[in-house]
Simulated scan of single mutants.
Amino acid sequence: MSLPTTTKEYFWKELGSLANLSFRESKLPPLKSHEVLVKIHAVSLQYRDLVIGLGQYPANVRDQLVACSDMAGEVILAGKDAGSEWKPGDRVSANFCADHIAGETTLEIQQTAHGGPIHGVLTQYKSFRPHSLVRIPEHLSYEEASTLPCAALTAYNALMGPVPVKSGDTVLILGTGGVSIHGLQFALASGAKVIVTSSSDEKLKIATKLGAQHVINYNKTPEWQEKILEITGGRGVDHILDVVGALDQTLKAIRIGGWIHTIGFLNGTAADVSLGNLMKVCYIRGVNIGSVAQFKDMNRLLASHPEVTRPVVDKVFAFEETLQAYNYLQSQAHVGKVVIKVV
């Protein structure tokens, strides 16, 4: 077969403004014998992608960075030394950190994160090392599967971590973005009761439709932790998925011995770690995506509960509408994920 020799892609000419997102056609490097060439069909956007472009990401990224970390695509060719696992036509996603195969992460592993330390996936074709690829569930479209590497896997790692969510637990989900919606779905698939907070009644209606048993508008109920205690009869919740940095309030809403899973760096508010909060003897766990092994475990859960866990894609943009997709993400009008269809 005739292999592509060029690829069209979006990259950051410089950081500091979304207007610096630039388009180019580049020469595709020859496929190395230990690599797998993938045609990328869909890319989903992360909050991280936005803050990188705005120059607000608290870590170094490479110059002229090809954007984004999350993709789904189709294997075109596997090199002769890439092993026998992958063949043309296989539908795959790449893990966020290419070298995070299993177990805990390390600084060295973090330096293999797509769309930051190494070039990203907002391109038509890209070569990957075979160990970084994961087969995507058969029932998902490329657009749906593109949401899995960061948003879904982060939520899975949080809620299925050291003490997994179980039937009968109560889980508090802050927000209605990609990680939050996946967290809602995984908690429901595990038999837990779910409470969701948002500033938008319309978004809360969607959360209710997805299965949340309780919803709270935090603009109308600023002391929402008191409502949480009321709902749980004063006990507090078992798990909290905190994507907004609301540690002062989550410490009051968690039960004794519960788990607060902190994700991202949205607000950075200072926590009120009073003696009363310390008496909760709860666990505060920072979550940084997940491994290939966890990705495979998550995909089995998705296949076992195909409808309740189906990714929520808010809007799909064409490849030439990539800047509009970024602007839409920045508007925070979305529920679930914003996806770019690569053609």
Rank of each mutant, 00 (worst) to 15 (best):
residue 1 M to T: 12
residue 1 M to D: 11
residue 6 T to F: 09
residue 16 G to K: 06
residue 16 G to C: 06
residue 18 L to T: 01
residue 19 A to L: 05
residue 31 L to P: 01
residue 35 E to N: 05
residue 38 V to Q: 01
residue 42 A to N: 00
residue 45 L to S: 08
residue 60 N to D: 14
residue 75 V to N: 07
residue 93 S to C: 15
residue 94 A to M: 10
residue 98 A to E: 15
residue 98 A to W: 08
residue 104 E to A: 15
residue 105 T to W: 08
residue 108 E to C: 03
residue 114 H to F: 15
residue 117 P to S: 14
residue 119 H to A: 02
residue 120 G to S: 11
residue 123 T to D: 04
residue 126 K to S: 03
residue 127 S to W: 01
residue 131 H to Q: 15
residue 136 I to N: 10
residue 144 E to H: 04
residue 147 T to F: 13
residue 147 T to Y: 07
residue 150 C to L: 12
residue 150 C to G: 05
residue 151 A to P: 03
residue 153 L to D: 08
residue 167 S to M: 09
residue 183 G to I: 11
residue 184 L to R: 03
residue 191 G to K: 08
residue 195 I to R: 02
residue 195 I to A: 04
residue 209 K to E: 15
residue 210 L to T: 04
residue 210 L to A: 05
residue 213 Q to Y: 03
residue 214 H to I: 02
residue 245 G to D: 07
residue 246 A to W: 12
residue 252 K to L: 15
residue 253 A to I: 04
residue 255 R to K: 15
residue 261 H to E: 06
residue 269 T to S: 08
residue 270 A to Y: 03
residue 272 D to P: 00
residue 273 V to W: 06
residue 278 L to K: 07
residue 281 V to F: 09
residue 287 V to S: 01
residue 293 A to P: 00
residue 301 L to F: 12
residue 307 E to Y: 10
residue 309 T to R: 13
residue 318 A to W: 03
residue 321 E to Q: 14
residue 332 Q to T: 11
